Structures are given as structure tokens and as C-alpha cells.
Simulated scan of single mutants.
Amino acid sequence: MTAQDILKDLKSRKFKPVYLLHGEEPYFIDVVSNYVEHNILPDAEKGFNQSVFYGKDTDIMTVLGAAKRYPMMADYQVVLVKEAQDMKWGKEDDDKKGINPLLSYLDNPLPSTILVFCYKYGKFDKRKKAYKAIDKNGLIFESAALYDNKLPAWIKGYVTSKSYKIAPQASAMLAEYLGNDLSKIANELDKLMLNIAAGQEISLKEIQDNIGISKEYNVFELQTALARKDVFKANQIINYFDANQKANPIVVVLANLNTFFTKILQVHYLKDKSQNGIARELGINPFFAKDYEAAARSFDYGKTMNIISLLRECDLRSKGVDGGAPHGELMKEMLFKILH
């Protein structure tokens, strides 16, 4: 099931007694847990029938104690465990009598309790008996991280769900600029949509005006300048980054350039190096394919490999390894070595 499938069931009041939400992408886990916390019970019932625990501050016995209670003057009670990856779960063979309290509950969960474990930033061990018990008597949702080439489509879907539209170039730029942090993307889009009329299409201009991307001096323009070996423009942009480091932190610049040159390396392996071929094989928007095509002509295979090594070296130095230096100086030195 997807997060939207789970939300659909929750809105229809189709509940499972136990949910395990786990995986590397926290966004979808937060979407489901937020709905559970704020919408399952009316406010008048939450005081007696809703318990919210945080993994590092609780243990499994405390959670089970809450889960075994019956709701007071209500049909259900909600027990929500956030950051469950930090919880003291106990060992499955802890009980001397051979009866583990957790497994005992999961094998026969209370129908009037909605117990939700939010296990973020990693997968729950599928070999554990607890996993198998939840799978049998409840619902398990794995929140997988989105691949970079899936981000523009996800952005389009998110915007559409809010009754807005977004231009393909705008969704591609947003994905490239913000990376695959879905919570950050959703937050930026929500703020952006407050500033434009309902139903309006979000264009490159709205992205540039509202999400702090300079129209002329951003990492995408830098990539274009590098692809064309436009030394003057590339230096203008790096100088702008140096003067505005808060809006253009070196970690973001390096991450985007590393992705850019890694894709250029992939282009060198392609049989079809046309813009359509590049877009299809790399899973990128055709809007950006021309830059990769130009860059592959400007930087041969050997030079591309050297640049990727250079970016990694620059990243280490920016963190104080091997003779750190001011970030502005590192970016300028990096640019010189890429272009010469």
C-alpha cells in the first residue's frame, strides 16, 4: 500500500489495530502519523484516549501498558510512537517463561486500540517475530526513498493534489535545487502556493522569485556555463555565491555539481547521445538534456572523472580535512581547476 492508500482507508474509518510505518523516507511516515494524530479522534476524546510517545523517552512496556487500556467513552484510543527507531524494544526472548509481552500483544491486539509505530530513517528488521506478527494482524508500510529521476513527477502530483499546476521546467529545477528531501520540497511548495492564485501554473519565475533561486546566479546557470565553458559567466556566478554564502552554501553547490558531473559520466557510456536519448536513459527532464549533451562534448571521460575527484576533495576540505580553507576560496579554486 502507498501512503495515499493508507490515508484513504483512515478517512473511511477502516482501521487496523497495529501499524508499522518504517523506511528511509521520513516524509510519507510523517504524512500518515500526522493524520492519525490530528484526525482519528475528535478533540474532545483526545485527552483520555490519545497517547503520544517518543522513542528515546519510552520503552516497549510503557507503550504496551497504554495499548492495553480500553477507550473511555469512545470507540477507539490512539497510541502513537514517534521516532520508534530510538525506543528500547527489549529482546524477543527476554521473558523467562517463554512469553514475550510484545509478541503476546501483537498476536492478539486490542481491536479498540490503534497502535502506530513510526520507525524512521531505516528499515525494521523483517526477520524479527514482531515484524511477522504485525504483518499478520496489522499493516506494514515501507516508506522508500524516491530516486532523483522520480522527483519531478512527485512534485507535479503534489502540486496537482493542491489544485495547482506546475510547468515541467519548474518541477525539474525544484528537484535539482532541493534534492530528494520531500519534506523540504513540500514545505517550499506550500509557502509558494500561498503567494499565487489558486489554480495558477507555477513557472520558473515563481520558483525563482519565491524559493531564493537567483534568476541569473544559481547552480543551474553555473552548470550551463560550465557545459559551454563560459569562463566569464561561471566566475560571475561563483563570485555571487561567495558574496551570498547563506543562500548558496558550498554543500549544496557541491552536491548539485557532483550529480551533474556524475550524469555527464553516464552520458559517455550511452550509445544514443542525442538530447532525447540522454533524457530517456538518465531519467531527466528533456529541458536539462541539452546541458548534459554540451557538457559531454566539453569534458571527455578522463576530465569528467578528474572533476568528480576534485569535487570530493573540495567537499572534504570544506569540512576541515586536508587543509581546510574559506568556502569562497575553495569554490573559486575548484572552478579554476574544472575549466583549465
Rank of each mutant, 00 (worst) to 15 (best):
L139K: 12
V253G: 03
L222G: 07
N100P: 08
F117P: 02
K8I: 01
Y147S: 07
L102C: 09
E83N: 13
K11Q: 15
N100C: 14
A84W: 05
A66E: 13
E37T: 10
S171C: 07
G55S: 08
Q4A: 14
L174C: 06
D322W: 05
N49W: 09
P326M: 10
D94W: 09
K233C: 08
T113V: 08
N256G: 14
I264T: 04
E92W: 09
K136W: 02
G199I: 03
L222Q: 04
A296W: 00
L115Q: 02
D5S: 15
T259S: 14
I308G: 09
Y105A: 07
N256M: 15
A255D: 02
K156G: 05
E142G: 06
E92Q: 14
H327I: 04
A197S: 15
E206I: 02
F336R: 11
A74G: 11
D9T: 12
D209W: 01
Y131K: 04
A197P: 00
D322L: 15
F117A: 07
T259I: 11
Q223S: 13
K303S: 10
N276D: 11
I40K: 11
Q223M: 13
K120N: 04
L106Y: 09
E206Q: 15
Q169H: 06
D315G: 10
N210K: 12
E83G: 07
Y119P: 08
Y217G: 00
E293R: 15
I338F: 05
Q200K: 15
V81Y: 06
V32W: 09
N258H: 12
N248H: 14
G138D: 09
H22M: 06
Q236W: 00
C314Y: 12
F299H: 00
A167F: 05
D107M: 01
V78Q: 12
L20H: 12
E24G: 04
E201G: 03
F141W: 04
G138C: 10
N180C: 08
T224Q: 14
T62A: 13
A296Q: 05
S51T: 15
A74Q: 04
Q275F: 00
A170L: 08
V79T: 06
F287I: 02
L270M: 12
Y105Q: 08
A247W: 01
Q236R: 09
A170C: 07
P168Y: 02
P286N: 07
K82A: 02
K184G: 08
N187C: 08
A198R: 10
K136Y: 03
K68G: 11
Y301M: 13
L310P: 04
I211F: 02
P286Q: 05
F48V: 07
F117D: 02
Q266E: 13
T262V: 05
M193S: 03
V159A: 02
S104T: 05
I238N: 08
I134H: 06
I155A: 02
S203D: 08
Q4N: 14
G302D: 15
V252W: 05
V219R: 04
T262L: 12
I99D: 03
L189P: 10
N210D: 09
I211W: 00
E25G: 10
V36Q: 05
K332E: 12
K184T: 14
G47T: 14
A3I: 00
M73W: 01
K205N: 13
T62Q: 14
V32F: 06
W89Q: 03
A234P: 06
N149A: 01
I278A: 06
A153M: 10
K97T: 13
K120I: 09
D9Q: 14
